[in-house]
């Protein structure tokens, strides 16, 4: 597999021979990927190629699925988290996730953000206030909602809801943010807004984003991995992968000949 690995000193997250099986279905085959700190990595490929499955391995979200078997190593800050006695709650505190459909809880804007810190034991009101404000500021939502923190989050627009979900994940101060097609349910304007937000967040977080939108990968990702039928076909700096793909399957996909 043509690979351009990230420098060793900047590895935030790495997988080694990661395989996923749903019963007999071999959904992910020997994925070896390295994600560099403070970079955005895009995972592209047709539906059902294993990229979402891969993403959900990284914060151990696949564990709850019955008959799902995950083999291989997932190294977070150098230690394997794909072990039976790993504390999944702790892992998810450090590796946040944003989903395809905005899923704010049936709570106020404030309580949506404060939910996770509270679950992890932060009770101090001033500290929570501070966290809520800083998370909303980071997600570029503070100005729009600062006056109505007590109103229901479901009243926000789709784009605002998705930024709220990003803020909610940031409230745990994670190192890594996993984004599963975060813009596919949004209109183009909200999409651009979120994209520029993600580019700004790069300074503080490592991000892995699954996207069907090739332009989006081109616009925001430093590196891009192309998945096909459960396999990582090619992984390289985004510019290189898009302009000089090594594998013909990659160039076929990028030029729209299949997938």
């Amino acid at each position: 597999m043509p690979m351009q690995p990230a420098p060793t000193d900047r590895r935030a997250l790495q997988t080694e021979n990661l395989n996923v099986y749903y019963r007999d279905n071999h959904a992910l085959k020997d994925a070896n990927l390295i994600f560099a700190r403070n970079e955005i990595t895009a995972l592209i490929g047709a539906s059902g190629c294993g990229k979402s499955t891969f993403l959900r391995c990284l914060n151990l979200m696949n564990r709850q699925i019955p008959h799902c078997r995950i083999e291989g190593r997932i190294l977070f800050e150098g230690t394997d988290i794909n072990t039976a006695d790993e504390d999944v709650y702790k892992v998810r505190r450090h590796i946040g996730m944003v989903f395809q459909r905005p899923n704010p809880f049936y709570k106020s804007i404030y309580d949506n953000i404060a939910f996770a810190p509270r679950q992890h034991g932060i009770r101090d009101k001033a500290e929570l206030d501070e966290l809520v404000e800083s998370s909303l500021r980071q997600a570029a939502l503070w100005k729009e909602v600062s006056g109505k923190l007590d109103t229901t989050a479901l009243a926000l627009s789709g784009g605002q809801q998705q930024r709220l979900c990003i803020a909610r994940a940031l409230a745990l101060k994670p190192e890594v943010l996993l984004l599963d097609e975060p813009c596919s349910a949004l209109d183009p304007r909200s999409t651009r807004y979120i994209e520029s937000l993600l580019t700004e967040l790069k300074d503080a977080y490592t991000m892995v984003i699954v996207t069907h939108n090739l332009q989006q990968a081109w616009r925001i990702a430093d590196r891009t991995a192309f998945f096909l039928l459960g396999e990582v076909v090619e992984y390289n700096a985004t510019t290189a992968l898009f302009t000089e793909p090594v594998d013909t399957r990659t160039s076929d996909y990028l030029s729209g000949r299949f997938g």
């Binding site: 914060n59 979200m61 709850q64 999944v88 709650y89 702790k90 892992v91 998810r92 505190r93 946040g96 996730m97 989903f99 459909r101 899923n103 704010p104 809880f105 049936y106 709570k107 939910f115 996770a116 679950q119 992890h120 979900c165 909610r168 994940a169 745990l172």
Partner: peptide, 27 residues
């Protein structure tokens, strides 16, 4: 209650009981 709520709560490191108690029952 939409499944997205459950996934969201779990992705934030909530235990199953925290998820049921704070998110599912609330909704």
């Amino acid at each position: 209650v939409p499944d997205g709520y459950r996934l969201g709560a779990k992705s934030l490191g909530a235990t199953r009981w925290q998820m049921i108690h704070r998110v599912v029952l609330r909704s």
